[in-house]
Amino acid sequence: MSDPQGMSIVVRVVTRWLFGLILIFGLAVALFGHVTPGGGFAGGTIVACAFVLAILAFGGSRGPGAAFARWASSLDATGALSFLVLAILGYTAGSFLHQWAARGELFTLGSTPSIVLLNLAILLKVGAGLFAGFIAVAVFEGAAGSEKGADA
């Protein structure tokens, strides 16, 4: 991040307003992924977008960006692990990745709790993973040609 101050005051204030809204939108897209278009992948990417916006507006080394960056890769692992745990819970109903939770009425949020939980695990995994990847590219500070080999 060449500019540790981030962007102008206008962008920062708008970001502060929009950040929570984008998060909630991503969460809703993932949460209702089994009855409406969306799901863990779309929701996770939207959540990653919110954090990307925050890190671009506030700068990489200061503000919330730095705090998020520290947590991103462990959240990534948490998402993968919770997907696995949910998959193993399927053994209580018969086999790996089997639906283990009681199912409700069709067309409602509770119609299939295990798929909802899997969607949320994917959201965590994809969101944190993509954000960690973005940080790696955005915060990279290699100066041009600073590691030049023999070609000079």
């Binding site: 990534d76 067309f107 299939t112 993973g129």
Partner: peptide
């Protein structure tokens, strides 16, 4: 499956192994 979005139903039930592998691929790429 109880999921009326058929895409999600296939993604997280019938072909959930694919999704597990796919999550691994993202992890590896990142």
């Amino acid at each position: 499956t109880g999921a009326t979005n058929v895409v999600t139903a296939i993604l997280l039930d019938f072909r959930a192994y694919d999704t597990l592998g796919e999550a691994t691929v993202i992890l590896t790429a990142v």
